[in-house]
């Protein structure tokens, strides 16, 4: 089936993602399988991370991860968390999604030191060395007091031309107090 045979996305209601591409009924809508594969391929986030969540689309290309029960379609204001932007060349996870699900990331995660982490969450772009892929990365750091732990995700950065561009939305940006070493 080509997208031409499929229904158009209804952007005002929540509709659940099909399990696989073969079950698609709405044009341009990725399947659950494709989304799970993307998190795994891009960041090494295992599929089991989302075992308790259903995936939905509301708004063009806005995907939501939800842990509760709802009918399909659902006419609601919000359902779980916006976690991924699709229907664009490079899929982009949200800040809150990488904070919630990105601790398990094993690739395309760039670790920032204290000063770089503060600049990143203030919304600043910065030149940084990075040997891996360009594109959307998960920026992580080790918060003071937890240096021995696994790094904690800060949000999403776009790495291009030797520069990490902070994608932290305006409302989430913070000037972290410098008392913290």
């Amino acid at each position: 089936m080509t997208d031409g045979d499929l229904a158009e996305n209804r952007s005002h209601v929540f509709e659940r993602l099909p399990a696989t591409d073969a079950e698609r009924t709405v044009g341009g809508r990725p399947s659950r399988e494709a989304v799970l594969a993307w998190w795994d391929d891009r960041f090494g986030v295992p599929r089991e991370t989302f075992a308790e969540h259903t995936f939905w689309e509301k708004g063009a290309g806005k995907l939501w991860a939800y842990a509760g029960d709802a009918p399909d379609p659902a006419d609601l204001e919000a359902l779980g968390m916006v976690f991924l932007r699709v229907r664009q060349e490079h899929w982009k996870p949200t800040t809150d999604a990488v904070q919630r699900f990105g601790r398990a990331a094993t690739r395309n995660a760039i670790e920032l030191d204290g000063a770089a982490a503060r600049r990143f969450v203030a919304g600043e772009d910065q030149e940084l060395p990075w040997d891996g892929d360009w594109g959307y990365l998960i920026a992580v750091h080790r918060p003071p007091g937890r240096e021995g732990d696994r790094p904690e995700p800060l949000g999403v950065g776009l790495y291009v031309h030797g520069e990490l561009r902070s994608q932290i939305p305006k409302g989430r940006r913070r000037e972290i107090d410098r008392a913290e070493r």
Binding site: Y66, G80, M81
Partner: peptide, 13 residues
């Protein structure tokens, strides 16, 4: 709710 990582929320208005 999203900052807190809540995903079991259905919101109505």
């Amino acid at each position: 709710a999203e900052r807190c990582g809540v995903t079991n929320l259905a919101v109505t208005n």
